Simulated scan of single mutants.
Amino acid sequence: MLREDYETKFTTLNQPFEIGTPNKNGRLRLREIDIKSLKTDQLYPHRQVIRFNSTFVEVMDSWEFIRGRATALALPMWAALFFAISMFLFAIYSLYFKQVYWSIAIISCLTIGLVYLVYSNYKMAKYDLFGYTHYPIRFNQKTQKVYAFSPQQQKMIELNWRDLRFSAVKEGDDIELRASLVNADNIVEEEIIFPFLAPRYQPELVDQHLAFFKAYMQGGDLKRIDAAIPEFFDIYNRKETFKESFERVYMVNDIVERVQQKRPKERYMLSVSLNIIFWLPTLFLRRLGLLFSKIPEWPTHIEKECRIERNDTYDSTNKQRHLAPLKFSWAQILVIFLSGLILFSLAIVFFIGLAYLSWNYR
Rank of each mutant, 00 (worst) to 15 (best):
W161I: 02
W161N: 04
Y147A: 08
E176R: 13
L181G: 03
V169R: 00
V169M: 13
L117Q: 03
V169E: 10
G113C: 11
E176C: 12
E158I: 10
I137T: 10
R162H: 12
L110D: 09
D173Q: 12
A179D: 06
Q154I: 06
A125N: 09
A184T: 14
Q154T: 13
T133C: 07
E189N: 05
E158V: 14
Y116K: 11
Y122H: 07
N186T: 04
A105D: 06
G113K: 02
Q152A: 15
P136G: 02
K126R: 13
V146D: 04
A184H: 15
A125L: 04
F130S: 06
S150F: 14
I104F: 13
L164I: 07
T133D: 08
G131N: 01
I187A: 06
P136R: 03
F149N: 03
A105I: 13
N183D: 13
Y119L: 09
Q154P: 07
P136D: 04
L117W: 00
R178L: 07
I106W: 14
E158R: 12
T143K: 05
Q144T: 11
V169S: 06
Y135K: 04
S120Y: 11
T143N: 05
Y147T: 05
Q154V: 12
G113N: 07
F139Q: 05
E158Q: 14
A125K: 08
L110F: 14
T143H: 04
Y119M: 02
V146Q: 01
A148N: 02
I157L: 15
T133G: 01
R178A: 08
L159Q: 11
K123G: 05
G172R: 02
Y122M: 00
K145M: 02
L159R: 09
Y119R: 06
V118R: 05
F149K: 03
K142H: 13
L117I: 04
K145D: 02
E171D: 12
V118S: 03
T111N: 14
Y132N: 13
P136T: 02
Q141I: 07
I112K: 01
L177D: 01
V188L: 09
A148D: 06
S103L: 10
M124V: 10
T133E: 04
W161D: 02
D128W: 03
F166R: 05
V169D: 01
D174I: 00
